[in-house]
Write a protein that binds this DNA or RNA. Structure first.
Length: 614
DNA sequence: AAGACTATGACATTCCAT
DNA sequence: ATGGAATGTCATAGTCTT
C-alpha cells in the first residue's frame, strides 16, 4: 500500500466482494440453479445493490452511494474478461438492450461510466413509468399504498402541485418532486424527515429507500410463521431468506424514522445478569416471549459494549429476548463484559467446581512478591487477541529504574495506565510482562495446553483464546441443562472457535452425543478435534468450515440423522463491534459481524424443522 | 512465506466535581 | 442535572525477522 493513501483516495482500497456475496445470499442464491438471470427477479437484485449501497452510506450522501455502486461493479468485474461485460450488467438487472447501448456509448474499457450511464437510463425509465402511474391512479399501487400505510396521518387528499405557487424553497422542492413522479404525500414525508435543507438527491434517496422496503413487503407478504414449515421445498426457504433480508432493511429504516430513540437498553451495574454465584442478587423468574421458547434451546453471545442500537437489533432478531449482560470478573480473575441471549431456564443454576482463582494474586501467586503497593489491581481487564510489546515493557522498566524507592505519581500513572491497557503483570523488580498463552487458557477455564502444539503459532493461540468464551461463565448458564438431558445432548455449535461451549458442557458432566461445529479457522477446528480425542468423547464430532454450507437441506439431513438438536450455541464475530477495532468498527453490518444474521437464519431453520418433525 | 512485532484512535460509558 | 475527565475495549495494517 502506498504511503499517501489516506484521505479520499478510496480507489486503492481493496474492495472485498463479501458484500456482494451477502446480497446474493439473501436475494439470489436460494434459486442458484438459475443459470441466466431473467426478468423481474433480477431486477430485484439491481435494486438490492442500490439498497445495500444506501445502507452502507446512509441516504444522505448520493455521491457516496454512487461510488459504492461503482466499487461493487468494479470488484465483481475485477476477475472477469470483457466478454463477460454484458452478462455482468444484465446480471445486475439491466436490460440487454440498455447494456449494449451503454457499452457502445462508453467503450468496453470504462465500466464505471457504463454503470453510471445505465443508472441514468433506469432512473429515467423509472421516473417515466412512475409519472404514468401517478397520472392514472394514486393509491392503488402496492408501492404507494403500503408506503402510505405507515403515515396515515399525512394528508394525501388533493393533488395541488400544479396550482402551487413555488415561492418558498420548500414549495419549489415539493413541486420538483411531484414533477418527477412522486406523490405529494411521499414528497412531504421525505421533506419532513430529511429536514428543510435537504437536497433533491437526498429526498429522492429517502423516498426510494422507503419504497424498496415496501416493495419487499409487496413481493413477499408476511405469512404466518407456520406455513413455510409445512413443506420444505426451496421456494419456502427462499422466502425465509428474503424475510431476513427484509427485516434487516426494515430495521434500518425504522431506526431512521424513529430518530434513534431505541436506546432503552442500558448495561446493568453491577453486570451480573440474572445472577452470579458470588453475589446475592439473583433473579430466578422471567417470562420469555412465546416465539422464543424451545425446542431447541439457544444461546447467543457477543461483546456487551457494542455500538449503539446493536443489542436492540440482536434482541429483536432473537425473538425479543432480553439480553443477559454478565462480566466474567465475577467468575474469574479477568473481566469480560459480554451479552448473552438465550432461552434457557434460569432457576437452579450451579457453577463449575472447583472455583477458578478470582483475583490476580490467587491466579498468579508468584507475582505477589514483585507487585508494588501502588498497583492496586485485583482483577485483570478483558483479555484480548494481542499482547503488549517488548518495547513497552522495556520503557516501563527504564522509567522505574531511575528511582530507588517509589516512583513519582506521574510515573506511577503512566505505568498503571499501560499495565491496565495491556494486562501486564509483575514478574520481577521493575519488570512487567504480558500473560503467557497457557495463563490465558487457565483464566478462561480451558484445560492447560488446550491451544498448544499441533502446528499452532503463538500469535494464533492468543488470537483464538482472545476470541473465546470464558468457560465458567458459560457453564453457569448452561448448567440447567444437566438435569434435563441426563443421557446427553445434541449440540449445534456455530462459530465454535476453540470449543468453549463444548468444553463447558463437558466440564458440567453433560455427555455430548452429537456435535456439529461450524468454524472457519482450520487452526481452531484442529484444536477442538484434538480436545475431542484427548477427552475420549463417545459421541460424534462433525466439523463444517463454513456457515454458508449449512443450508436447509444439510440441516435437515443432519437433524434426521440425530433426531434434532437440543441446543444451538453461537458467539458471532465481534470484530466489527468492539471498541478495540480502530479500522472497521462498522456495527452489525460489518463484514464479519453480519454473520450474526447467519446465526439467526440457521436458528430459524432448526426451529422450523424441529417443529415440523414433532 | 509465515510468524513476530509494533504503532495505530474512536467511541461509549462511567466517574466525579460542580 | 451536567459537562469534562477518566476509563476501557473478543483488533488491523504495516513492517521486520526468521
Amino acid at each position: 500500500m502506498n504511503g499517501n493513501s489516506c484521505g479520499g483516495d478510496a480507489d486503492n482500497f481493496d474492495w472485498d466482494t463479501e458484500d456482494e456475496l451477502e446480497i446474493d445470499n439473501y436475494a439470489i442464491s436460494p434459486c442458484s440453479e438459475v443459470s441466466l438471470p431473467h426478468g423481474k427477479a433480477v431486477l430485484g437484485s439491481a435494486e438490492e445493490l442500490v439498497a445495500k449501497a444506501i445502507e452502507e452510506n446512509g441516504q444522505e450522501n448520493s455521491n457516496l452511494i454512487l461510488e459504492t455502486l461503482l466499487q461493487y461493479s468494479a470488484s465483481s468485474l475485477a476477475s472477469s474478461s470483457n466478454s463477460k461485460l454484458i452478462y455482468h450488467f444484465v446480471g445486475m438487472g439491466f436490460s440487454e438492450e440498455m447494456v449494449l447501448k451503454a457499452v457502445q456509448e462508453n467503450g468496453e474499457g470504462n465500466t464505471d461510466s457504463i454503470l453510471e450511464t445505465l443508472l441514468t437510463y433506469s432512473a429515467l425509465e423509472k421516473s417515466a413509468s412512475m409519472q404514468q402511474h401517478a397520472d392514472s391512479s394514486h393509491c392503488s399501487s402496492d408501492y404507494e399504498g403500503s408506503f402510505l400505510d405507515d403515515f396515515s396521518d399525512i394528508d394525501s387528499s388533493s393533488e395541488t402541485a400544479e396550482t402551487m405557487n413555488p415561492d418558498s424553497d420548500e414549495e419549489r422542492k415539493l413541486l420538483y418532486l411531484t414533477k418527477m413522479g412522486y406523490s405529494k404525500a411521499e414528497a412531504s414525508i421525505a421533506m419532513e424527515r430529511c429536514g428543510p435543507d435537504s437536497s433533491i438527491a437526498e429526498l429522492t434517496d429517502f423516498i426510494c429507500a422507503a419504497q424498496m422496503a415496501k416493495a419487499a413487503d409487496a413481493l413477499f407478504p408476511l405469512e404466518d410463521k407456520k406455513p413455510f414449515c409445512n413443506d420444505s421445498n426451496r421456494k419456502k426457504r427462499r422466502n425465509l431468506d428474503y424475510d431476513l433480508w427484509k427485516r434487516r432493511k426494515q430495521m434500518k429504516l425504522e431506526k431512521r424514522f424513529l430518530n434513534e430513540v431505541d436506546d432503552a437498553l442500558h448495561l446493568p451495574n453491577p453486570m451480573i445478569g440474572f445472577g452470579v454465584p458470588t453475589e446475592s442478587d439473583q433473579i430466578t423468574q422471567r417470562t420469555l416471549p412465546e416465539a422464543a421458547t424451545g425446542p431447541p434451546y439457544f444461546y447467543y453471545e457477543n461483546v456487551a459494549l457494542a455500538p449503539k442500537g446493536v443489542w436492540n437489533t440482536i434482541s429483536r432478531f432473537l425473538y425479543d429476548v432480553e439480553p443477559e449482560f454478565v462480566d466474567s470478573k465475577y467468575f474469574c480473575a479477568a473481566a469480560r463484559k459480554r451479552g448473552y441471549i438465550h432461552n434457557l431456564p434460569i432457576e437452579n443454576r450451579f457453577p463449575l467446581l472447583p472455583f477458578p482463582p478470582r483475583t490476580i494474586h490467587e491466579a498468579f501467586p508468584l507475582t505477589r512478591k514483585w507487585w508494588p503497593s501502588w498497583d492496586t489491581r485485583t482483577k485483570l481487564n478483558c483479555l484480548q487477541t494481542c499482547i503488549g510489546s517488548a518495547r513497552l515493557t522495556e520503557r516501563i522498566r527504564k522509567a522505574l529504574e531511575r528511582y530507588d524507592d517509589e516512583p513519582p505519581l506521574s510515573v506511577q500513572k503512566f505505568v498503571l495506565d499501560e499495565c491496565r491497557k495491556w494486562n501486564l503483570v509483575w514478574v520481577g523488580r521493575n519488570k512487567v510482562a504480558p500473560l503467557e498463552p497457557d495463563e490465558v487458557e487457565m483464566l478462561f477455564g480451558f484445560p492447560r495446553n488446550h491451544t498448544r502444539g499441533g502446528g499452532i503459532s503463538r500469535t494464533d493461540r492468543y488470537k483464538s483464546l482472545g476470541n473465546s468464551f470464558q468457560v465458567d461463565t458459560v457453564a453457569y448458564h448452561l448448567s440447567v441443562l444437566k438435569d434435563m438431558f441426563p443421557d446427553g445432548i445434541n449440540l449445534l455449535s456455530l462459530f465454535s472457535g476453540i470449543g468453549g461451549a463444548e468444553v463447558a458442557l463437558h466440564r458440567l458432566g453433560i455427555p455430548l452425543k452429537n456435535v456439529v461445529a461450524v468454524e472457519k479457522s482450520e487452526v481452531n477446528r484442529n484444536i477442538v478435534r484434538s480436545w475431542w480425542e484427548q477427552t475420549n468423547q463417545r459421541g460424534n464430532l462433525i466439523d463444517i468450515p463454513d456457515v454458508q454450507e449449512l443450508n436447509g437441506d444439510r440441516l435437515e439431513q443432519l437433524m434426521n440423522r440425530f433426531g434434532g438438536f437440543d441446543l444451538v450455541v453461537g458467539g458471532s464475530p465481534c470484530n466489527n463491534l468492539t471498541g478495540s477495532n480502530r479500522h472497521h468498527r462498522d456495527g452489525l453490518e460489518g463484514k464479519d459481524s453480519s454473520l450474526f444474521f447467519d446465526y439467526c437464519r440457521i436458528l430459524d431453520l432448526v426451529k422450523c424443522i424441529t417443529a415440523r418433525n414433532q
